[in-house]
Nucleic acid binder design. Structure first.
Lengths: 278, 278
DNA sequence: GGTGATTTGTGCGTATGTATT
DNA sequence: TAATACATACGCACAAATCAC
């Protein structure tokens, strides 16, 4: 009540909780608090900073969590996040002479090569095209399109959420309207029906996930964005496919390899973590 | 003080602040609260939800801010963020027969074409290579490399933060150790010195910015990640250049156009916003 | 395998500062 | 100048999850 602790009559140009956050951040980025190490408890932090209120400490911690630097676990404490298993998701540039099969084989190969176990959930629905899909597929908004979705897992952990859209006529001709995975790949199925992919346009951006997206991709920590990756493929005459893939950004990296890369492949394939650890 | 408000004896499976956030999110995503529109004040929200505490409302709002959905301004209120000027940053796939000049011309053309004014701050320093640069450039960590950095602006607003690294010997031969922009482009300068870029490896990822990065890129709102884009280029025998570019993710999109795209260019170039608005 | 202690999660209340209208 | 509305900071209480014994 009357406890006026006349402590800060000075003008704290930067707020208290932010100064505390700055101090902790420095501990982390400098390496004194390495990945996986535990921070002091909230109460300890209160005392270390001259008995500030718990809310102030929590504000500071929330700041760092939003930056993706730490994560908290009830009862266990607060920990420096480790951007561990930074398996990178390579997207090789598709070439006209080597069409991939919707990436499925590539995914399996990639994951198997790393000694981990891939799996996936598949679904097919027919639905009206929203604005984004309609514009890319060049159909009218609301036209029915075939949507084939795959959620991929590595060691039972969700890795990517992908959905591909096809115009009705092409889907019918290529036999894509089946509620199962197409072993051979939809790309080859379309090619057999006379629709060969000869060019692609990729759009890559990023944003924070919705709670639903975070749930699907098992993003538990705050401060982890998703990578949004749209691929539109074309035959010589029209768009064939629109694929929208969402990745948790802390576990993935999109890689393009273009041109002559003998010099690249000669050297050892270095998979440095992409500056995630700052 | 002894006001024990025996209000919630029930088990609120989802916390109160989260339910309030869910409700507000629905208002926004459904469009009832459009971009730019103002939310009720915190006090109004308290009343609308049966007189909950202000902290609870603020928790809900912080949730939405961290998702990039809203932003708050002292005294003015809380607003639905508008992912407005979604100018997209096109990165055309470089081809061996058409090397670009470090992107500078491309940037100027791109921005000018949209009737906006580009500008940039340039700097050159010689510094030891960190682990990421060293591995990509295939020099030893700590070896001195030439770093040429550019911060690009569109209408005086920061757009990207880019820094390119060159091995010392190549930089000397190509005359890159000058503290000015090279009008012709460093790529052509290297080519003249016998180091021609014939292949590139791009790595794209995303994370939340550090406060310093947010300051440089003028990212004021919470919940806005940055796109991290590494390009390593190769001659037939070795890595030539490592370029690290950082973009605010809410204003940028990286685009690749690969293969034959007559069908794409025939149709109007649709620049749909990339699902940023959900 | 339960019990208690620890630690974060949620929610309440209050006061004052600061920027803007 | 005054009022408004968000920002920061203090305090408290209890719940829930987990770890150690």
């Amino acid at each position: 009540m009357g406890t006026n602790h006349t402590k800060g009559p000075t003008v704290p140009i930067t707020p208290l909780y932010r100064r505390i956050a700055d101090q902790l951040r420095e501990e982390i980025t400098s390496g004194r608090l390495g990945p996986g190490s535990r921070l002091p408890t909230e109460e300890e932090l209160q005392q270390q900073h001259g008995g500030v209120s718990r809310n102030t400490i929590r504000n500071a911690l929330r700041e760092l969590a939003a930056e993706g630097l730490i994560e908290t676990a009830t009862r266990r404490g607060t920990f420096v996040r480790q951007h561990r298993t930074l398996t990178y998701h390579a997207v090789s540039a598709e070439r006209a002479d080597r069409p991939s099969s919707e990436g499925r084989d590539a995914f399996y190969d990639e994951v198997h090569a790393q000694g981990r176990s891939p799996s996936q959930d598949f679904a097919m629905v027919i639905e009206p095209a929203d604005a984004g899909v309609a514009a890319r597929l060049r159909v009218a908004e609301g036209d029915l399109v075939v949507a084939r979705s795959v959620v991929r897992y590595v060691d039972k952990r969700p890795w990517s959420d992908q959905i591909s859209y096809y115009a009705m006529d092409i889907a019918e001709q290529a036999g894509l309207i089946v509620a199962q995975d197409i072993p051979d790949g939809t790309v080859r199925a379309m090619a057999r029906a006379g629709h060969e992919e000869v060019g692609v346009v990729d759009e890559i951006t990023s944003r924070m996930p919705t709670p639903e997206e975070a749930r699907v991709l098992d993003i538990t920590a705050a401060g982890v964005p998703v990578l949004l990756y749209w691929r539109t493929t074309y035959s010589t005459s029209r768009p064939l496919r629109v694929t929208r893939t969402m990745f948790p950004a802390d576990r993935n990296c999109i890689v393009y390899e273009l041109g002559e890369l003998v010099a690249y492949h000669e050297g050892l394939r270095v998979t440095v973590d992409q500056d995630q650890a700052r």
